[in-house]
Amino acid sequence: MRAILASWLTAQTGYVFTKKYLILISKYLEGCMVDRALKAARVMLKNSKIEDEVFSAELLNKGGNNRLYRIEGASNQYLLKSYFVCGTSHLERIKREFSFLEYANEYAPEFVPSPIAFDLKSGFGLMDFIEGSQKFNLKENPQFVSLATKFIKKLNPQRGRGAMLKLPDAAEAEFSFQGHFGLIHNRLRSLAEIEVSDTLDITARNIANKLAQNWPMVIQKACAKIEKYCLSPNANLPARFLCASPSDFGFHNAINPIIGNLRFIDFEYAGKDDPAKLICDFFEQVACPIPKKYEQIFISQIGKHFDDEDFISLRVEILRPLYVVKWICIILNVFRESGRKRTSFAHDINLASLHEVKALQLLKAQEKVEAIL
């Protein structure tokens, strides 16, 4: 936020402000935001007819794209989420998250926080606060992946098919191979927005160019498999395979609580989706990598749950290389202006910190590039 503030002040006044002055302004603005969060929490609790005296708000700075506040009440703790605003997209993200939380509390309540209220006008959402750790030793604790599998199964019971089909489509949901191709192609095109100002930007641009050059080959290989197995690139996934998906699914969006069961959080992209996409995202996200040894059992368990392990496995086989490309694009988002704005909104990042984030993301991107090209 400080870097954006510095740029804005310089653009408005023509002066370059010192670091000390910027820190003072940042602290003042942070105090204003905390006061606003506290007021919003009180209003939402009152409107929800929850009698609890709220007395403090703490900015947690743990959201990937949003600001998170721990709200202390006399009886309970709450999590207040301030959604990143970009046009009107935050409205859909808020509605999507709370509709999914309501659905999940019906079918898998032990795995998710309870929603309380949201306010589209202010861009806030309020839910239960879960005290716990976000550190997972997945290599030595297979029970976590087993619990993730159980969560997906509980989200998709046979008795809940009607309710699931009423969920909105997940963000970037696609149900045909051609749809998946188009989705990832658009993400590749967005990397053209990378502006070069230092050597890290040059490296990111080179990776983007390399992906663009090899993208036709990735599509060609996928189409060869589609033809080999007599599938249609344009046919939509049969309705019986549609699933309720958390979308941005992984242990980066999970909490191991001090008391109780593993909980999953952050459902602003959730909804109806292709289970093969869910599986690809689960294993290709880089925030909390899933060890390779769990892949086949996870794919098998999800496939069996939908009564066609071979079909789900085949879709994963075809889509997996495409989703490696997708995740490289996501990793490089910080090199785009829109990606930097999201990161700066959620975290107080100065120019030095931004340089470190870019360097780390480049390492992750290069590792994935080597795996696919």
Rank of each mutant, 00 (worst) to 15 (best):
A244P: 11
I130G: 06
N209Y: 02
N214S: 08
F84A: 05
R96T: 10
R336A: 01
A40H: 06
L242K: 13
P233F: 00
H355G: 03
G250I: 03
A6V: 01
E30A: 11
I328Y: 03
F84G: 05
F175I: 08
F136W: 00
Q12G: 01
N261D: 12
A11Y: 11
L29A: 03
S56P: 06
V34A: 11
E309T: 09
A244V: 13
I299K: 08
S338G: 07
I4V: 12
P291S: 08
A192S: 15
L165V: 11
E356D: 12
K304A: 15
K304T: 08
A171C: 12
I259N: 08
Q77F: 06
L167C: 15
H185V: 07
A346T: 09
T18L: 08
I372E: 09
P246V: 14
A37L: 02
K39E: 13
E227N: 13
R159S: 14
K293S: 10
P246R: 00
K20N: 15
A208K: 04
P238M: 12
G271L: 07
E53L: 14
A276E: 07
S197F: 00
S197L: 09
L211M: 06
G73M: 00
G179Q: 06
F264I: 07
E172Y: 02
E72K: 04
K221V: 04
R93Q: 13
L314A: 07
H90Q: 11
K153D: 10
Y21I: 01
A276T: 02
S7Q: 15
G73Y: 01
R340I: 05
